[in-house]
């Protein structure tokens, strides 16, 4: 029983990390149909800039805030300099642009921040909290709380605010959105800013657990992407559920079957789910128009 609890604790911790990354994908995807492969780099930038801000003597919350704002600005820059000029290009070209952006950001970070691994202290210490015979670190609770908060925030944003609906409208039909007076350029910039900020916040929360180096973005983006697809791309509920599910499957496979094949188990389940639910767990069915 304590074993199972420990596996669940581990699964929820890792799952919350994936969910945070997956949530970052949703806004840009909702606004533009583009899966932003540089999302992992936003996470890295959030963690990395906080490390350097903190090392430079800023209090941790201030360093984190600066990192999040700076990353949001980089998100806007990415949109203005690379995505907007390519408007009208096929989606696959836009994806290659985001892959290029991911390599570019990694390349710049490697020069600016170096290749060392870093971490900063956990927010509420490192004393493990006992839970039914297992333990969880306080920082894991921060990550889980962060994932839940962002999920609720996004859900409210998309359903309760005019701007959120404008984002959805832009994705649905750009021309129609413009006709009803939505400033689609502003919506795009906003989406990139928000996605980048969510990514950076994720970086701030997970760095005490996962550590940060210039190249952690790739593997985080890969898992986050898989989690988002498992849940149904574009849906915050799907991102949260997909992330947690992925984390739990990995932990339970590592615990009960084989740690060598824990990533395999996760992908087998993804393949299985997509076989029966081609739009992911919470995706909506779309029909092709001729």
């Amino acid at each position: 029983m304590p074993e199972l609890m420990q596996f669940l604790m581990s699964g929820v911790t890792v799952g919350a990390v994936y969910a945070l990354v997956a949530l970052g994908f949703t806004i840009i995807y909702n606004a533009s149909d583009v899966v932003n492969f540089a999302q992992g780099e936003f996470v890295m930038l959030g963690g990395m800039m906080t490390v350097f801000g903190y090392a430079a003597g800023l209090p941790l919350p201030v360093a984190a805030l600066v990192a999040i704002l700076a990353t949001a600005a980089i998100g806007v820059a990415l949109n203005k300099l690379a995505i907007e000029p390519a408007r009208g290009a096929p989606v696959v070209s836009l994806i290659i642009i985001t892959i290029g952006a991911s390599i570019f950001i990694r390349g710049v970070s490697q020069v600016v921040f170096g290749k060392q691994l870093h971490r900063f202290p956990a927010f509420s210490g490192d004393a493990p909290i006992p839970v039914l015979g297992a333990t969880i670190l306080p920082q894991s609770l921060w990550v889980i709380a962060g994932a839940l908060a962002i999920f609720v925030g996004l859900w409210l944003f998309f359903t309760r605010t005019l701007t959120g609906r404008a984002v959805l409208a832009t994705a649905n039909n750009r021309m129609a959105a413009q006709l009803v007076g939505i400033n689609t350029r502003y919506v795009m910039s906003l989406s990139f800013a928000l996605s980048a900020a969510i990514g950076a916040l994720a970086g701030v929360l997970v760095t005490p657990i996962t550590l940060v180096s210039y190249d952690i973005g790739i593997s985080l983006a890969l898992k986050g992407f898989a989690a988002a697809m498992l849940g149904g791309m574009g849906n915050p509920k799907g991102a949260l559920a997909g992330g947690l599910l992925l984390g739990l499957m990995e932990a339970l496979t590592a615990g009960y079957i084989s740690s060598q094949y824990k990533d395999a188990a996760a992908f087998v389940v993804i393949l299985g789910v997509l076989f029966f639910m081609p739009q992911g767990l919470f995706g909506t069915k779309t029909t092709e128009r001729v």
Binding site: A82, P85, A86, A89, I96, I99, G100, A101, F104, V111
Partner: peptide
């Protein structure tokens, strides 16, 4: 050390200007 940075830049520029 600017190799990666240049590679990413080239990829973006090609796709922006030659979509």
């Amino acid at each position: 050390e600017y190799e990666q940075l240049m590679l990413g830049l080239v990829m973006m520029l090609v796709m922006i200007f030659m979509r």
